[in-house]
Simulated assay, not measured.
Amino acid sequence: MDFKTYIRDIPDFPKDGVVFKDITTLLKDAKALKMTSEALCQMVGDQKVDKVVSMESRGFFFAPILGVHFNAGFVPVRKKGRLPAKTVGQTYNLEYGTDTLEIHADAISPGERVLIHDDVLATGGTALAVCQMIESMGAQVVQCNFLLELGFLEGRKKLEGFKVKSLISY
């Protein structure tokens, strides 16, 4: 299946000069949704996965599906202040400034094998922050999975040392 045919380009969103990759056109098509879910699972192979961790918000579409497939739990990572219980945080650099992501402190146990999933690998900063957070909790990142990769932004370089796979590359 040519997954790219289900991705819509939105020029100048969220700001001028950016071409946004809209995945809602893929999500609304039952066949494409099923095939995408299966392909994302196949990218992981037969690795043991205890938890699937994903960043808000578009990563949340496929992460629970991956969790069900691997008989693993789903753990959301959110922006600072959006999780109700005790959290562990990781601050990372943005183009202009910093941001902080958080995960519930009791969501990951030492020794667990974690699959990280997000919708897009762009500059790699968010994914690296999550990898660092998971490792700081004593768990192992088995793979970083992405629906889309914007290769021209070279985010994969930031994730050197981690196994990285993307279903669709631009």
Rank of each mutant, 00 (worst) to 15 (best):
L153G: 11
N145R: 15
L94Q: 13
K163Y: 02
G111V: 02
K31Y: 03
P76K: 13
K34Y: 06
V75E: 07
D50L: 06
F60E: 06
L159F: 14
F3Y: 11
C144P: 03
E135R: 03
P84W: 10
M35V: 13
R8N: 11
N71K: 08
Y96C: 08
I108L: 01
A30K: 11
G138R: 11
T5K: 10
Y6D: 08
N145W: 14
V164C: 12
S169L: 11
G138A: 12
D2A: 04
E135P: 05
K86E: 15
L147E: 09
I10H: 09
L66T: 06
I7E: 01
T5Y: 00
V142N: 13
V130Q: 02
F70K: 08
Q42F: 02
Q132C: 04
G17K: 04
V114A: 01
L40I: 06
L94E: 14
Y170P: 06
A32D: 02
R156T: 10
K48D: 00
F152K: 09
L167K: 14
K79G: 03
D12M: 10
G97K: 05
T91Y: 09
L147K: 04
F13P: 07
I168L: 09
S109K: 11
I108R: 00
E160A: 15
L121M: 08
A63R: 01
M1W: 14
R78E: 02
V52M: 00
F13T: 07
Q132A: 04
N93Q: 15
T87P: 07
R8E: 10
P110T: 08
E112G: 04
F74Y: 14
